[in-house]
């Protein structure tokens, strides 16, 4: 059959993919990749990644923030990851957040590295009504602490509307989560994508922190330099 006509290219493909497989096997061991230069874009000022167990409500959170709506319909798990760019006003500036909504399903775990690499903020979500999701959150926090020291961490307890309706279903204690956040130097929010509670506040905080960070200062300086250089080129 003609599928393997061009062996050269195929070997290339196989090799590349094995690399992923290897990574999957050894995903605790840091692969020696370069910085996230490929997975970043000119269009975006700050890369923000959402992490967390499946079903915790990451997609709903992005959906609420970006489109101001909530789908009460049947749960649709994310496949791979979804990217959306969203402008946000901070002071007198408009920044563009590049938001990566990752899939919580375990089979995509090996891929997660490409999404959080180079991120300036990670929103790690847990479901207030599911204690196992908080266990999973700790896994992600460790992963970030090991691989992505520059990345600022935001913990996000989701579905707070459910707790308000019935306090007894809370499975993650507020103070425990607070203590943990302090310990790992993370911000913490409790949000509801259904009512919209605290959602804008969360992303606003992410954007402001980025705006005040050194990363942002460096970036703007670089851009100005770039522009100056380009101008001087044109004059010649």
């Amino acid at each position: 059959m003609s599928i393997f006509l061009n062996l050269g290219i195929h070997q290339h493909i196989i090799r590349r993919n094995c690399e992923f497989h290897e990574l999957w096997k050894l995903y605790n061991i840091e692969p020696l990749f370069s910085t996230g230069r490929n997975m970043s874009s000119q269009r975006v000022d700050a890369k923000v990644v959402l992490l967390g167990k499946e079903y915790v409500g990451k997609t709903s959170l992005v959906e609420r923030y970006v489109h101001k709506r909530f789908h009460g319909g049947p749960y649709q798990n994310t496949i791979g990851a979804a990217f959306v760019a969203k402008p946000i006003q901070v002071g007198d500036k408009v920044l563009t957040l590049g938001i990566w909504d990752t899939a919580g399903a375990e089979r995509y775990e090996a891929m997660s590295r490409i999404y959080y690499r180079g991120a300036c903020a990670a929103i790690v979500c847990y479901d207030l009504t599911d204690s196992s999701s908080f266990v999973r959150l700790k896994f992600w926090v460790k992963e970030l602490q090991n691989c992505e020291q520059q990345c600022k961490i935001y913990l996000c307890g989701t579905k707070s509307d459910l707790i308000e309706a019935d306090r007894s279903i809370r499975q993650v204690d507020y103070h425990d989560a607070q203590d943990y956040a302090e310990e790992v130097k993370a911000e913490i929010f409790e949000t509801s994508s259904k009512t919209g509670r605290n959602v804008d506040e969360l992303f606003q905080k992410v954007a402001e922190d980025f705006h005040n960070s050194t990363a942002f200062q460096v970036m703007t300086e670089e851009r100005e330099m770039d522009q100056r250089q380009r101008k001087s080129c044109c004059h010649h």
Partner: peptide, 13 residues
């Protein structure tokens, strides 16, 4: 999946 309706999807396949 309606998952690709929002934003741009990126998935290993």
């Amino acid at each position: 999946s309606s998952s690709f309706r929002e934003g741009e999807g990126w998935t290993p396949i």
